[in-house]
Design a protein around this nucleic acid. Structure first.
Lengths: 200, 200
DNA sequence: CGTAGGATACTAATCTGATTAGTATTATAA
DNA sequence: TTATAATACTAATCAGATTAGTATCCTACG
């Protein structure tokens, strides 16, 4: 009789994501997750491979959701407009899913680049960004450097934001808009000046 | 009447910083820290206010070290050169002290903006960056937005780097250099074009 | 039909880590 | 010389992760 309706792996991960997003990654605990699901902590091991496994699942979920968001944002746009939409969607995603996003980062420290599935996911996301940057005349390594830049910028801004790092009473939306515009302006300038030298 | 100087408190924080930098924030545990110091875990409470207090101390140490680094880098330089030096010093600092840096971030989630000492430290760092950006004709809110941008960019790049987020075999130094140059190019373009509109 | 497996749940127990309470020791200021 | 503050300790509690061993139920196959 103590047996209840079956739980699915999907439900476990979904509930973990809800918990992490609602109360922060640090609140994501196997004990609390089990309580939410109405089971005892050890039972979770029937669905995920402990905390490391759960974090990995969240990392995969993160990448899937992020990829979908970025594609939605980029579709039908091009040039500077596409970059703005992409950056904004990226930032909004992180703010909507801070727990899942940070869990994804944490997982990368545990599951080094050896994890093929994670790596492939990352590559798909990079692919979306590459497509958006293509019209700027970037290709090969130049394009990859630019992807790193855009990613760093959005990641940095959004993680500082959710960490409460921006203390001053200054509109964050405006800060972000300006930052993205600065990047775009730099890309446009580069486009003409050919090489990536600002002065030197 | 004067209380005797406690050099032990400094030692605790210093050792915590070494541990965090060497083995990661997650390895920073009161048990392990106590073992390194040759005492039992509860004895640590004579020196710091538990784990939250320790994280706060590390956050303060982080700000002091970072401020010193940034000042060193900026002194005697100006314009684009100063920005490059500042960004590079910032990034190098984070890579040298990943544990302390991340502990500082974690502390901000625990000690909300109410903490006056932390806030003042942040403001000093902002001041250094503001001084470097001043020659670009930015002032008031414009300058603050730019500080946020520069900080986001460096923070984002460096934290992705230490998290192993850049999987591709592409030179990180070069990626960073280009990103900083893009920002500078954007700032220079703005300087002439007056307002911060790229199109719209 | 009826049982063998697998999936899933449980309890019990271990380990690590944070924290509090209570107590002993010792250096030093009065 | 003694009172006190700083510091250390042990013991105990609590939360969390994890493993081992066991019970229960669903389902598929004979």
């Amino acid at each position: 009789m103590p047996l209840k309706p079956r739980l699915h792996r999907e439900m476990v991960i979904y509930e973990a994501a809800r918990l992490a997003d609602a109360e922060g990654v640090d609140a994501l605990t196997l004990n609390r997750l089990a309580a939410r699901l109405g089971i005892r902590p050890p039972s979770l091991y029937n669905h995920v491979d402990g905390m490391p496994g759960l974090l990995r699942e969240l990392a995969l979920l993160n990448i899937r959701m992020l990829e979908a968001r970025l594609k939605d944002a980029a579709v039908g746009r091009s040039g500077a407009d596409a970059i703005r939409a992409l950056a904004q969607a990226y930032r909004e995603y992180i703010k909507e899913h801070p727990g899942v996003y940070l869990a994804g980062l944490r997982a990368q420290r545990l599951h080094p680049p050896i994890d093929a599935e994670l790596r492939q996911g990352e590559e798909r996301v990079v692919g979306v960004v590459l497509a958006v940057l293509a019209p700027f005349g970037l290709s090969g390594e130049d394009a990859l450097h630019a992807v790193r830049g855009l990613r760093s910028l959005v990641h940095g801004f959004a993680t500082l934001e959710i960490a409460g790092g921006f203390g001053l009473p200054l509109d964050c939306d405006e800060s972000f808009r300006r930052l993205v515009n600065l990047l775009i302006a730099g890309l446009l300038k580069d486009e003409k000046g050919s090489v990536n030298h600002v002065d030197d």
